[in-house]
Structure formats: structure tokens, C-alpha cells
């Protein structure tokens, strides 16, 4: 079952002078079992879009299909809780949702809300801690006294412990250092490849999109402007330039080389391959 939006609109504060159309007639299908990047400028409706996936926001018009459920405008969906257990949503700056006394308790909070027993929840929490790279020494510490990056991991572990089938992350790496970003993104990559989870990531980081994602959705002023796979999207930089997006460094490099008479094949997908290819061509000429 793919995830689909059918003519979905979302209007904030409808019927007041603050009325704001954040999504306008969005029809979109998102591939299951893949990592999809949702990109677009601030205010283009990315966060609004993803909050429909676990029914935190309900469509003002149209319907959302997710995991054999239909969320339709105008009807109050039932058993929201089970949907929220299956679709894990990590908010932007999730470190602000920590509140328990210890890291372990905070991570176990989610599973417990879904009716998992105390011991089982603790077990799930420990597994999640391991996944995000938090050692057992963190278990008894207060989440409020950790560093920003560590808090972020605790918050993400709190969602992972619920073991959702679909994982939605709103700018999960914003404000993290490059190393932390790398670790987070490779974690999501692993979760997708090893456990087959469908993953949606809202991001601004084209390097991460290029390296870790399968599909791209570009949002613009409340509408999906484009949906394609990453290979096509970054085939060359023309599409990015059209959309005013700075392409990843590797793509820019490839473009520059091509402009200067090198032949670079499309298969080249990381810096090492590019270096080897260049070395070969230089040798052949020299």
C-alpha cells in the first residue's frame, strides 16, 4: 500500500482574518519501503504535509491514504492511537519534548503509551538507545542535562522505540555537527535497508539527499512541484538550477569537468570513484 495524498488542502485558522492556505490541492504518491526526501523553501508546507501522515493535522479537503487507512476531510478518524504507533513522527528540534527523569524512562514513554508492558518498554528503549549510538551509561542520566546532539538522539530513540512501520522526520539533522548528521543519516539508511521501513525526511541538505535518499519531492508554495527519483533529479545540475537549489558538490564537480572536456560517466556516485576515473583519464592523456 503506497502512501497517497488525494487533492489534499490544508487551511490554518479558516474563517478568521488569519486564514492561511498551507497546502493547496496536493495529489502525491510516496513510495513504500524507500527513503523519500521532501525539500522546498521555508514556508512551502513541508511540515504541514508530513503532519497529515499520523493525523496530527486533518485535511481541510481531500483525503490521505496511509497503511490501509483513509483519513478524509470532515470526518473524525477513529483509533488515532494505533495509527500514531505505526507512523512515527519526529518533529523539528525534538529535544524540546523530553520530560522524564531519566533517559531510559523518556525513551520508554512512547512504547508504554501504546500498551507495552514496563519491562518490554525498557527493553525496546535499550535497543533504540543502541541504534542511535547512546551507550548504557546514559540510561540513568537526566535528559535535560545532556548536550544538544545527545538530546536529539534521545528524542529520536523515543520514536524508534515504538517500532513504527513508517518513520517521518522533520529536519532531523538541523543544527547537528557534520559528524552527528552523518551518523543520523546512516542510521536512517540502515533502518530502511535492514528493516524495510518507509522513511520520509524533510531536509535542506542536498548532500544528504544525494547520498542517502531514493526519491525526492519538491514542495513549492503548498504544492508538490516535482516528484522523481534521486538519480534523475541529480543527473545533472540543470534541474536543480531551474528550482533554485544548489546541487551537491559532486554534481557540480562533474558538471565543471564535463564543461572542460572530461567525460564523466553517470555511474560515478562518490568522490573516490570520481578521483579514480579522473586519474585514469589523465594517465591516458599523459
Amino acid at each position: 500500500m503506497p502512501i497517497a495524498f488525494e487533492h489534499v488542502s490544508h487551511i490554518y485558522n479558516d474563517g478568521t482574518p488569519y486564514r492561511h492556505v498551507a497546502l493547496e490541492d496536493v495529489s502525491l504518491e510516496l513510495a513504500e519501503g524507500k527513503i523519500t526526501a521532501i525539500i522546498g523553501q521555508t514556508g512551502s508546507g513541508k511540515s504541514t504535509l508530513v503532519q497529515h501522515l499520523n493525523a496530527l493535522l486533518l485535511p481541510s479537503a481531500g483525503k490521505v491514504l496511509i497503511l490501509d487507512r483513509t483519513i478524509e476531510a470532515g470526518s473524525q478518524p477513529k483509533q488515532l492511537k494505533s495509527l500514531r504507533g505505526q507512523v512515527g513522527l519526529v518533529f523539528q528540534f525534538p529535544e524540546y519534548q523530553l520530560f522524564e527523569e531519566t533517559v531510559l524512562k523518556d525513551i520508554a514513554f512512547g512504547p508504554k503509551n501504546f500498551g507495552v508492558s514496563e519491562e518490554e518498554a525498557a527493553k525496546k528503549a535499550r535497543t533504540a538507545m543502541q541504534m542511535v549510538g547512546l551507550g548504557p551509561e546514559f540510561e540513568e542520566r537526566s535528559p535535560l542535562e545532556l548536550s544538544g546532539g545527545q538530546k536529539r538522539r534521545v528524542a529520536i530513540a523515543g520514536i524508534l522505540a515504538m517500532d513504527p512501520a513508517v518513520l517521518v522526520l522533520d529536519e532531523p539533522t538541523a543544527g547537528l555537527d557534520p559528524q552527528g548528521t552523518e551518523q543520523m543519516m546512516s542510521l536512517f539508511h540502515r533502518l530502511n535497508r535492514e528493516s524495510g521501513k518507509t522513511i520520509l525526511i524533510v531536509t535542506h541538505d542536498m548532500e544528504q539527499v544525494y547520498r542517502y535518499c531514493d526519491e525526492v519531492v519538491v514542495m513549492e508554495q503548498g504544492k508538490p512541484k516535482l516528484r522523481t527519483d534521486v538519480q534523475t533529479f541529480f543527473h545533472d545540475s540543470s534541474l536543480c538550477r531551474e528550482l533554485n537549489i544548489l546541487p551537491p558538490a559532486l554534481i557540480r564537480m562533474k558538471d565543471m569537468l564535463r564543461e572542460n572536456g572530461f567525460t564523466v560517466s553517470d555511474e560515478v556516485s562518490d568522490v573516490n570513484m570520481l578521483a579514480k576515473e579522473l586519474a585514469r583519464q589523465v594517465k591516458r592523456h599523459g
Binding site: 503532519q51 499520523n54 496530527l56 492511537k81 500514531r84 504507533g85 512515527g88 513522527l89 519526529v90 518533529f91 525534538p94 524540546y96 519534548q97 514513554f109 512512547g110 503509551n113 501504546f114 523515543g158 520514536i159 515504538m162
Partner: peptide
Amino acid sequence: EETQRIIKAQESRGVD
């Protein structure tokens, strides 16, 4: 805004 954000974040963790 912050209150609404936190409510949403906790609802995502199964809080009713």
C-alpha cells in the same frame, strides 16, 4: 505556538 508544538510532539508518542 510552543504549547501546540509540544502537544503535537507528545501526541505523536501516543499521549492522549
